[in-house]
Structures are given as C-alpha cells and as structure tokens.
Amino acid sequence: MKALYSLFFVFALLLVVLFGVGAAHLNMLFGVWIPYVAMAVFLLGFIYRVYDWAKSPVPFRIPTTGGQQWSVLPEVKQNRWDNPTTVRDTVIRMAFEVLLFRSLFRNTKSEVYKNENGGPVVAYASAKWLWLFGILFHYSFLTIVIRHMRLFTEPVPGFITLIDSLDSLLQIAAPTLYLTDVALVAAATFLLMRRILAPQIRYLSLAADYFPLFLILAIAISGIYMRYIAKVDVIAIKELTMGLVTFHPHIPANVGISFYIHLFLVSILLLYFPFSKLMHLGGVFLSPTRNLPNDSRVRHHENPWNPKIKCHSYADYEDDFREPMIEAGLPVDKAE
C-alpha cells in the first residue's frame, strides 16, 4: 500500500510535466525556474541539515569497536581499522565505511553449510546481495552524475570525458550503451523488489522508503528513453544547461518533452533530498560511532556541557556508618 502511494505520486509528477509543458507550454517555468529553485533548496537545505547536526556537540567518544583495542602488550595486535586510536586510522575506517560499505559487508561472510540432506547451502545470501546492489547503486549513481557534468562544462574537463568513454566501453547499440544505466536500473529494481518481497523489510518500510526508489527509477528510465528512444537533440539541451550554469537562462527550440520530464523529476529529487532519509549522504560522515577514535582512556576529551555532578562524598558516607566501621576495625577519617 505504501509502495502504491509512492508509485502514484511519481506518476502524478509525470502528469504535471505533461500538462505543464505539453499543454500549457510553461517551458520557462519547467526548464529554468523550477530547476533553479530545486538547486537552491538542495544546496541550502543540505548545508542547513549538516550545520544542524554539527551544531549538536558530541559529548562522549562512543565508537563501536569492531576489533581488538590498542594494547601495551606486544603480542596483542590492535585491529587498527576497526578499533582506531589515531586520527589516521579513524580516517581509514571512515574511508572503508563510506567507499566500500564495510559494515554492510560484515553481513556477507558467505559461509557454506550443509543442509539436512547434505547439500551445500550458502548462508546470508540475501545480505550479500544487499551489499552488492547497494554499492552498485551508489557507484552507478555517482558515475552518472559525473557524466552529466559534460552538459554543464565547456570545455569538458578530461576526466569527465574519460569516465564517459569508460562507461560506454562495451560499444553496443547506438548511441553506445552506458554500463551504469543498466547497473543503476538493475540495482534500484533489486532494492525495490527486496522491500516489496521480503516480508520483514516490507514490514519496516515506510512510504518514504519507496518514494525515492520509484523517483530514481523514473529519472533513470526517462534518461534512457531520451537517449536511446527519443534520441533528443543534445546540442540544444547543452545550450539550455549551459545557460543555466552561466546564469543566462534561455530555452532553445528543439528541446523535447522527454527532457522536461527528466529535468523535472531531477528537480523533485533535489527538492526532496534535504528533507528525507537521503540525507544519509551527509550523515554518514557525522556518525559518532564511526568517525571517532576509541581513545577516551588515552587522552582527555572535553564535553562542552559537562554538568560536573558531585558524587555522594566519602565524608557523608562515613557519617552514616562511622560507628560500625570503627567497631569492625575499618580505618576512618574522623574518629570521634
């Protein structure tokens, strides 16, 4: 049900463009103003959210330790990347986390067990897929974003051209098929299907979990449609996009409706981003269980709001129990 709501909403967005551009000819609105507003909301919203998190202090260093601590015993070997004590090792831990999804990978120790009939069974298959498709999804997305930068730069920097040519390495179909297009759609579909089909994941999913997946799928499909089926006029599109980045917005004549659909959906994604779970892009860097060294026992860390609460003092304790303490032969501070 929640999935259906989200799907309907994405369709509604499509209709908005079809009416807005196709029927009402609001090209300026959909080609210029909405993208500008979306970009502004995205940037300001993102910065605000990160600022808002950063504003709250980190009173304690609470890393989740994933291995042996630093020990003064030479034969006890520290697991430096899972239980770092230095900034360098913490950075490495974060890099593993952000670039390779290390914690998610922990799930994936795929071990072969025998089932009751003696046949081999791979444990944790689903979790392994989650890591694989998760990483495929994110890297495809990143590559696609970088590739698109060729529409916003003139001359196009070399590395963008390079990524572009690597991505179309297979040289199949015309225009050549991008690997990441396929990967993104496949990965997003997997993540969506997992949510819909695995009962325990469906149980904990919210509409807000389906919506971004549907939206990203719609963006990918509209992009693919533009490139391979509608075969839109890329020169005209680049004219428009360059107009946007140089703040000389202008709508060329040969831009088809499919582009407006694509652009509008991207704008919606940007608008939605700062208010949603997609902010995990920023949040992952701020997670105190990962981005801090396990070193509170080694060096002092300051809690900015430390309340310095006084403990029940020894003097008060002794006042309570002085007599029996003396009787029992325990030393006391004030023998009266």
Binding site: Y113, N115, V121, A123, S126, A198, P199, R202, Y203
Partner: peptide, 10 residues
C-alpha cells in the same frame, strides 16, 4: 516477517 527470515537463514 519472522517466519520467512527464519526459514531462509540457514
């Protein structure tokens, strides 16, 4: 949701 999980994980 639990039944499915307990059946799958070997």
């Amino acid at each position: 949701q639990t039944a499915k999980l307990w059946k799958q994980n070997t």
